[in-house]
Amino acid sequence: MSTVHLTIDGKDVEAEEGTSLLAAARSAGIPIPTLCHHDKLEALGGCRLCMVEVESRGKTRLVVSCVYTVEKGLTVRTRSAKLERIRKGILELLLAHAPDSPQLAELAREYGADRNRYEPESLFCILCGLCVRYCAEVVGKHAVGFIDRGIRKEISFIPEIAAKECDACKACFPLCPTSYLQAAYVLTGSLVFPDGCSTAFQSSRGPSSP
């Protein structure tokens, strides 16, 4: 496989053909913020925080670096006034969904995002798809998936699979940037076993629940 030379933030970077801009930048020690990226998973391009400016043939445009592959002679900027503004805007929208996420709060501090800019609409899920993709691609159980679309899109456990597999696994829990997932899991448990008689779901319940 051939290597490609490109410039990221004025630095000459060498990368394997086919790698993403994000991977190339990170291997060169240039940080790009992400929420939906995971090294073991196929890129989704869902959170849009890793947006960068790409300059080729005299034109500048915005691309999502985790799903954009490196090209010869590209000039990439990972920080600019425009990018800061875009990331701040994205963070403010996400904060309306998950105002108490520590990961979001830290990014908000960095980019000066105001968590109260938009009316809170606490869904606690920012649809990064980490749990869904991790369960499908790494664990291979497909216990959690998306349902519906647009503003009604949400994650949902398949009760039949979740009851069998999730208690022993829970690998997706630490991935969640908002901790919504745990809530969804417990919710599924309480829906499927309203009397709380199943041991499969009990250990995941918080001490405060009845």
Partner: peptide, 8 residues
């Protein structure tokens, strides 16, 4: 096809 995909 996994059930999660069908439901989606």
């Amino acid at each position: 096809v996994p059930m999660s995909r069908i439901q989606h």
